[in-house]
Nucleic acid binder design. Structure first.
Length: 689
RNA sequence: GGUCCGGUAGCUCAGCGGUUAGAGCAGGGGACUCAUAAUCCCUUGGUCGGGGGUUCGAAUCCCUCCCGGACUACCA
């Protein structure tokens, strides 16, 4: 029996769980349940990741204390996980006494290893809010290309990288205030000192997927590893560093330590020793994470563990992101579905099954195509698998299963043998392969029922024995499939166990048929998915107030903010700029213009080249960063609003003589950009007053 | 631009050196009626991205090009 400790990444306490998060938690939960099913001792641990500026700000906005804020969020997270049958052995919080203690312990080791250096860091500071600003909380004009309102780390227009302090006319997105440059001491971990260890750990053994090891080799280990800035000056929601008053551990220092702290809390409750799980060569440690946090889990984290003498991860399992119908999840398209919203419309088993049917051990994005989702769930689960039971169980309600297992032409034995391959696939987190193999078993079981025609047998009392045998076979094949599928579909396993009076708890149950048992009354196990439910879920996930003009028209004559129920998200994402005067506004000459030509700039990722007419012979050549939102032909003929007196700017592909105005939510993907057009009747050349 | 992954039937994918390339779904035809109109049988459909090469033999190995995606672009 192996002893295995498993974690999923700690969800951040700044937002709700959505179906993208669930890829990871379901993947992990399935693997854990599989391990338990085959008899291994397997613990599944998680916690909320609670620290950092973002939580501090969100709590402030919500008008509650951080403690209150994270408590609410944690409750919400745990409720969602439970609803999807994600079964943690313990769910902690990084804002716990246990975590603080272990952070201190690990910190002490890192200090002792002389890996810490102190250096001053200049960072922008918001004097109005009284806090230092992470890069993404600062916006301003790009120092290179002059593009206004660019984020604090790099320019979305020219791609130039800079530090937020290089921005021209920077402002805080929290308050609109002009940030000040302030110097503060920060603590750094000198990761380069661990190079030897990290090279060998990442490049040998089976700790990482091959593509990840390769990626690290090329991207990080190819040059000196940079020092890791792991402290933040006050105010910061987190743990104060004991030997550095006024400084707090950066959230990414204490977050992974939460894995150990959560284990510690579990140990306290169950009378176990932490060292048996985190300092024992007998115990495997498996982390499941998304590809976005590869860096933290494959370099810093092993470095910290190694230095502090904890077990290194046996394996870091890294998965890709979720896409919906081939595109990134999008709030406006309604594909950014909160777990809570999903639950209002659909059965969690559908998602568990669908994800399982798509997941492999590779670092690939997983696509949820709505049609495929519906087809897979209905065809495989309901029509093929559950159908085996629902078409035969009632014939043996009174007699129960045959006392000995009848001749089934070798079906049960063959499916039992297939278990070895299915088991390997689960072990390797190659769930799509496992599911494919399992469904193939159902494809063989249904023809058996068809051929033996139980519905005819029941008409002849002399064939009662044969009827019982046929149903005994069908129900056993069903049960066998459900045992294999039980890590994916625990509810179905429970229902099947109840039907046959024999709870499904062990993989071995797939190897021996069940005989001589009474059969309970069959009750529905899984409803078919209906397209309208999926569509309703997507509709509900669209931002409130966003009316789909193709399908809905507003009630005439009724106008008011309560009627429209517009979301507060865009404004909150990008608070109002500092006040300006009418004179300030007059400097900007906005004009109505007609797009008379639009063409793609093939070499550019974001740009379209537009020719704007201001009426008469006056035209302007403008490059607009809207390629990902519009096709050129959609724009030709449109009346847009342009900044007509903008200084011309030479760009890689030509000179841009103006700018087309467009609306977007800060932080939204580049596909969510909406060009501002003029109402009917406006003509090119008119000024916007 | 760099790195990596992929391109096999309309769709999702399997096969990854060896008999005429497979499955499920979808399409077409038929059967059945126990079952959540589920099931079963038959069937249409593919120069395995293009081109070179290695080999007795290639979807499978090598080279090259094209296309799609992810990551990355002095950033952690």
């Amino acid at each position: 029996m192996r002893r295995i400790l498993v974690t999923s990444a700690l969800p951040y306490a700044n937002g709700e769980i959505h179906i993208g998060h669930l890829v990871e938690y379901l993947q992990t939960d399935i693997w854990v349940r599989f391990q338990q099913l085959i008899g291994n001792r397997c613990l599944y641990l998680c916690a909320d990741d609670t620290h950092g500026t973002a939580v501090m700000i969100s709590a402030r906005k919500a008008g509650v204390s951080e403690a209150e804020f994270i408590a609410r969020m944690q409750e919400s997270h745990q409720r969602d996980f439970a609803a999807f049958d994600i079964r943690f052995d313990h769910y902690g919080s990084t804002n716990s006494a246990a975590n603080r203690a272990i952070c201190e312990r690990i910190w002490h080791s890192i200090r002792q290893a002389e890996l810490v250096v102190e250096r001053d860091v200049e960072q922008l500071y918001d004097p109005r809010v009284g806090t230092f600003l992470p890069d993404r909380f600062v916006r301003g004009q790009c120092p290179k290309c002059g593009s206004p309102d660019e984020p604090g780390d790099n320019c979305s227009r020219c791609g130039h990288h800079y530090s937020p302090s290089e921005l021209i006319e920077p402002r805080s997105t929290l308050s609109g205030a002009t940030p000040e440059l302030r110097k503060a001491p920060h603590l750094f971990i000198e990761l380069e000192k661990l190079r030897g260890f990290l090279e060998s750990w990442t490049q040998t053994g089976d700790h990482l997927q091959a593509e990840i090891a390769n990626y690290l080799k090329g991207h990080f280990l190819g040059e000196p590893l940079r020092d890791w800035d792991i402290s933040r000056p006050a105010p910061y929601f987190g743990f104060e560093i004991p030997d550095s008053p006024g400084n707090y551990w950066y959230v990414w220092f204490d977050a992974p330590i939460g894995y150990i702290a959560s284990t510690h809390e579990w140990c306290e409750r169950h009378g176990e020793r932490l060292d048996d799980w985190w300092r024992s060569p007998e115990c495997e440690v498996h982390h499941f994470i998304g590809k976005d946090i590869t860096y933290f889990h494959t370099l810093f984290w092993p470095g910290m563990l190694k230095t502090a003498g904890f077990s290194l991860p046996t394996k870091v399992h890294i998965h890709g992101f979720l896409t919906v119908d081939g595109e990134k999840m999008s709030k406006s398209k309604g594909t950014f579905v909160a777990a809570r919203t999903y639950l209002r419309h659909l059965d969690p088993s559908y998602l568990r099954y669908f994800y399982a049917s798509k997941l492999s051990s590779r670092v690939e994005d997983l696509d949820l195509a709505v049609d495929e989702f519906i087809a897979k769930v209905n065809t495989d689960l309901v029509n093929k698998i559950v159908n085996l039971a629902s078409r035969t169980a009632k014939f043996v309600e009174s007699t129960g299963l045959s006392p000995t297992y009848p001749d089934d032409g070798g079906l049960f034995v063959a499916a039992a043998a297939a278990g070895a391959e299915i088991r390997e696939a689960f072990e390797a987190t190659d769930f799509s392969r496992a599911v494919r193999l399992i469904v193939a078993l159902a494809d063989r079981a249904n023809p058996f029922v068809e051929e033996r025609r139980p519905w005819d047998l029941r008409k002849d009392p002399a064939k009662a024995g044969e009827l019982q045998d046929v149903c005994t076979v069908a129900l056993n094949l069903f049960r066998q499939i459900v045992v294999y599928l039980s890590p994916v579909l625990p509810r179905l396993a429970e229902q099947a166990g109840a039907l046959l009076g024999d709870p499904i708890t062990r993989w071995e149950q797939s190897q021996t048929p069940l005989v001589g048992k009474p059969v309970n009354k069959f009750t529905h196990m899984l409803r078919r998915v209906e397209e309208k439910d999926v569509l309703a879920m997507i509709e509900e996930s669209k931002p409130a107030g966003e009316v789909d003009t193709a399908t809905a028209s507003p009630a005439p004559g009724v106008v008011g903010s309560t009627t429209w129920n517009d979301s507060g998200v865009p404004l909150a994402a990008e608070p109002l700029a500092p006040e300006c005067t009418i004179d300030d506004f007059q400097k900007i000459d906005l004009r109505v213009a007609r797009v008379i030509a639009a063409e793609d700039v093939p070499e550019a990722k974001k740009l379209l080249k537009l020719t704007l007419s201001l009426g008469g012979d006056t035209t302007k050549n403008v490059f607009a960063g809207i390629k990902e939102a519009y096709k050129p032909e959609q724009l030709v003929g449109k009346l847009v609003v342009c900044v007509a007196n903008l200084a011309p700017r030479k760009m890689k592909f030509g000179t841009s003589e103006g700018m087309v105005t467009a609306a977007s939510t800060d932080g939204a993907p580049p596909t969510e950009v909406f060009v501002i057009t003029a109402d009917t009747g406006a003509v090119p050349g008119q000024r916007v007053h």
